[in-house]
Amino acid sequence: MAIYKRLYRPYAGRYTGHRFRFWVITKSALRTLFDSRFLLAFFVACNIPFVIFLLIIYITNNAAAQALLQMKGSPILIDNFFFLRYLIFQSTLSFLITAWVGPGLVSVDLSNDALPLYLARPLTRTEYLLGKFGVIFMLTSAITWVPGLMLLGLESSLGPIGWFQRYYWLFGSMFIGSLLWIAVIGLLSLTLSAWVKWRIVATGAMLGIFFALAGFGEALNQVLRTNWGHVLNLGYDINLAWFNLFRMDSVTGPYNKPAIGRLMELPSWAGWVSLSLLCAFCLLMLNKKLKAREVVR
């Protein structure tokens, strides 16, 4: 057998800048994910509501289109509630994508003992986590705040005079509201992915935390005659924060009842606090788990 002398040859390619090394993890994970045609199809389908909302904005602000459709004015009012509905709709889809993608991101590295291989390279634990979180951030941003800001931009340009002056703050609300949601579901899915070895169980746990915890909170409310059980309902918490961000106190619902009334059982700070605590807990758990160590049995 021929034996060739192998000498050390340093990497000759272009180095990624120190600040963007996490991007390598994100890029490679995204490439792997989009190998699945099913995910690609679902991702494209997630943007169908965007097209529908876009058409609604266009038709509402275009007299010629209304005349063509034989409409006498638009029945839909484009205000903060309109954009909140868009965010609620898209966040549900982004939750499904995260529940699908998120649980497999870290668990694969941990179950195959690949984490030391990552951390042996010039990559910190924070950068590793940032790289994994980047995958969820990219996927969910593409269906939440990016198209949301485009819709707002379109309405600002096509809408009646004074619409932008009245609702300019919606740009910030859409961005911060989406970021909050992405942070919550992203960190939760990464934590479950790190702590639960198997993907199936992690996906189940993610659904369980969202739905079973909400049911438990409702049972708590009924039995103990309180409203504070709602803080266990992550959907309720995010709604509290969004209602606050989208200034829903000023919008009236059907039959002149304030739309906020349904959620008035708890103050909006309760939503912010419980979501912040959840994010902090997730970061703590990730910090505890993501360590480069070898378990010798």
């Binding site: 189940g204 049911g215 049972a219």
Partner: peptide
């Protein structure tokens, strides 16, 4: 009817 049947048993069986 709502917690056990719809959530608890559902997720328990799912797991």
């Amino acid at each position: 009817q709502l917690f056990y049947v719809h959530l608890g048993i559902f997720f328990g069986c799912l797991i």
